[in-house]
Nucleic acid binder design. Structure first.
Lengths: 209, 209
DNA sequence: TCGATACCTGTCCAAAAGTACAATGTGCGC
DNA sequence: GCGCACATTGTACTTTTGGACAGGTATCGA
């Protein structure tokens, strides 16, 4: 497991060296060069010194490297966290996190997990229920759907085809169609594209019929 | 690290015995008794057999035990996932996840991380930015589209059919199809539903990027 | 026990969507 | 002028989707 630290500030390196003695350092994302096809590693990206507008792009660039990216911020903020994580980061922590914590984060990220401070995580989950159709759907019309219909609708909302849905729910393609017809009728949309958009709260030109 | 499996189905136990030979099993959350003040562990909760209404309560009860809870579902769905994670679960995976994957998840959760399938994670992050104000990141891939293709793509993004697009742009339906084929190719989506979602910055299960 | 409802499936059909192969015309830079 | 990308359309084809019509089962409440 390699560790690549990207920061313009040299004084942070002592701390990192403590956590990962064999870690390498670079000043810019551009410096890390091509992805070594060798062992996987983790990119630790210090964004404290970057202009706010530049941060998003840097995270994207780092993510393009192919390794999981952990963003390190001087003052972890909620909106920034969500935005950067959405750019592909798998972790978000304080710039001055203790070496033991860094190692914990490394373990998590290395194994496909996702890490952020507990408070943020809490907040994160609380927000999530607000944007996803739950038992209290945003769109009241979703209440008209039966549980099975809702499952089908959610699949369509992700771009699944009838066959994929039938496999996911372990029913016939014919049954999927039956559910879809009922859904179209109930929600007043005319095809799966409009359904997919409606499920994501995106208005369409022609939903009026 | 202890592992506690809560499931009414006995046939699953082989699989996780493979992952954690020393894991214990219980049928109900109520059976796990008082929290041992000894070593920490992980609770794996099979909700496949539970009535939908009961799931939330069971997860809460399991979380009250004090150990991180990983929820295991037969058909992972997003609305369910976010609801249950909000009840305190730290992981959400497929009931039939491979033993190696279970061990990965264990590592993540054990170290304070958070685990769910990559597709869900991506979706999750994308949705979260919706509740937090950020400037919408325009997909750089859209630059690859020619002006005409972009017009067609925008129409699809609003749920228009091929005929509607042909009328709006005053071209043949055949031409619309030609543009669409080019768009699918360039953006790496497979049909108009996925295009519509991609144009609205909504990730899909089945697109790789 | 009798609906009502949800859920599941079948056949058949028609429309829509998507692909393959091919062709024409236009504008733009070298 | 030549090459090239773009826009446009054609024929012909396969696949996907959606609907019409016609059933099955299971559950739940009156």
């Amino acid at each position: 497991m390699e560790h690549l630290f990207i920061t313009p500030a040299g004084k942070l390196r002592d701390r990192w060296k403590q956590a990962f003695p064999r870690g390498r350092a670079a000043v810019q994302v551009a410096d890390i060069g091509e992805a070594t096809s060798g062992p996987r590693g983790i990119v630790w990206l210090d964004i404290a010194a970057l202009a706010p507008a530049e941060r998003s792009a840097q995270v994207q660039a780092a993510a393009a490297f192919g390794w999981p990216v952990v963003v390190m911020a001087a003052t972890p903020g909620e909106s920034e966290a969500f935005q950067l994580l959405n750019q592909g980061a798998m972790g978000y922590c304080h710039l001055k996190a203790a070496p033991e914590q860094l190692r914990e984060i490394a373990l998590v990220v290395e194994h496909g997990g996702f890490w952020m401070p507990p408070e943020l995580m809490q907040r994160f989950l609380a927000l999530s229920t607000r944007v996803v159709p739950t038992e209290a759907p945003i769109d009241p019309e979703l209440n008209e759907l039966t549980s099975r219909e809702l499952m089908v609708a959610e699949q369509v909302a992700h771009g699944a085809s009838n066959r994929e849905i039938s496999e996911a729910l372990d029913i016939t393609e014919r049954t999927v169609k039956a559910h879809l017809s009922a859904i179209f009728e109930k929600l007043g949309v005319r095809d799966r594209v409009q359904l997919a958009l409606a499920m994501n709260n995106i208005p369409t030109y022609t939903t009026v019929n």
